[in-house]
């Protein structure tokens, strides 16, 4: 028995080197560790927070938010805003960013982008995005550990190591990545491109996400901030992937003011979208102008 335990310990020590080597060699595969600060410009967004200490509206949510709420269109209408959306942000991560940054951004209203997709998400993609781009503190570690996923643990360890050795001090994120351009204030604009249908999956709301969402509502209302829940438009086919849209609408309406823009505006797949989930700039304008009306009502 002692021999067995001794060999387990010895193997653990021995294996750490080949494992680290293998991880390093396969870094380019980028499958199960996030080595780089990338994704939906979250690094730039977080670094801009000090520039926006007071705004009228703070946007929170997934790529539907940071690709869907163009702060320039709100500024034109006299509404100052900041977009704190991030890739696949689910309520668990929204709670994390709000708890971490709400003290730094004074806002009157929070527009929280909600969708069955976000509530069905396991939150892994978003957790990875947060951990690899954000400065780590105990909240980050807690959020990462709660994800209970190897890829998140790997990234957590790796990011902690980089932060500890201050390896990212010279890092600066490019404003334009491929077809995406970061606009100061958190919005990401996509160049015009032809509509391409993306793969859809089946959605099933997770209790963990709903619990996090309830906490968010509590936090926001506790601070006396007005909460507006918005479901951003997606293509009709995508919208129909979730079979209980009515139930979802009813559920959201119990928490705060809620607008489902899939029902409030009419959009065309080929004219207003660049894929099943995301609006092109023309679609963003239609959506945002309609939203401004609702916000200023």
């Amino acid at each position: 028995m002692m021999r067995f335990l001794k060999h387990i310990v010895l193997f653990s020590v021995f294996a750490s080197l080949p494992i680290a080597l293998f991880l390093g060699l396969t870094a380019h595969l980028n499958t199960n560790i996030v080595f780089k600060k990338q994704g939906g410009h979250l690094y730039s967004r977080i670094n801009e927070i000090p520039k926006f200490p007071k705004v009228d509206v703070l946007f929170v949510g997934s790529s539907h938010a940071y690709r869907g709420f163009d702060i320039r269109l709100f500024t034109k209408n006299g509404i100052s805003s900041f977009n704190l959306g991030s890739s696949s942000q689910s309520p668990i991560q929204s709670l994390y960013v709000l708890e971490k940054y709400l003290d730094s951004i004074d806002c009157e209203k929070i527009v929280f982008e909600v969708s069955p997709q976000a509530f069905s998400s396991d939150g892994i993609e978003s957790a990875l995005d947060m951990i690899s781009n954000d400065n780590m503190n105990w909240r980050t570690v807690k959020m990462g550990l709660e994800a209970q996923h190897m890829k998140v643990f790997n990234t957590l360890l790796y990011s902690a190591y980089r932060q500890f050795l201050n390896l990212d001090s010279n890092f600066s994120e490019e404003k334009t990545k491929g077809k995406d351009t970061y606009i100061s204030g958190g919005f990401v604009e996509r160049q015009q491109q032809e509509f391409r249908k993306s793969a859809s999956t089946h959605y099933e709301i997770r209790q963990r996400q709903l619990a996090a969402f309830e906490k968010i509502v509590e936090v926001i209302k506790g601070r006396g901030i007005e909460l507006i829940l918005v479901q951003a438009p997606v293509t009709l086919a995508e919208y129909k992937m979730y079979e209980s849209n009515e139930k979802f609408d009813a559920l959201m309406s119990t928490y705060s003011v809620y607008y489902n823009f899939n029902k409030l505006i009419t959009l065309s797949d080929s004219v207003h979208f660049y894929d099943s989930h995301h609006l092109n700039q023309y679609g963003v304008e239609v959506f945002n102008n309609a939203l401004v009306d609702f916000i200023t009502k």
Binding site: F11, A15, P18, I19, N32, I33, I124, H149
Partner: peptide, 20 residues
């Protein structure tokens, strides 16, 4: 043998998909 086991472990770490 131990190198092989370490590589299998590393492969699991690297290639396990995000969605479990």
């Amino acid at each position: 043998r131990w190198c092989f086991y370490a590589i299998v472990i590393a492969a699991i770490i690297v290639f396990t998909p995000t969605e479990q």
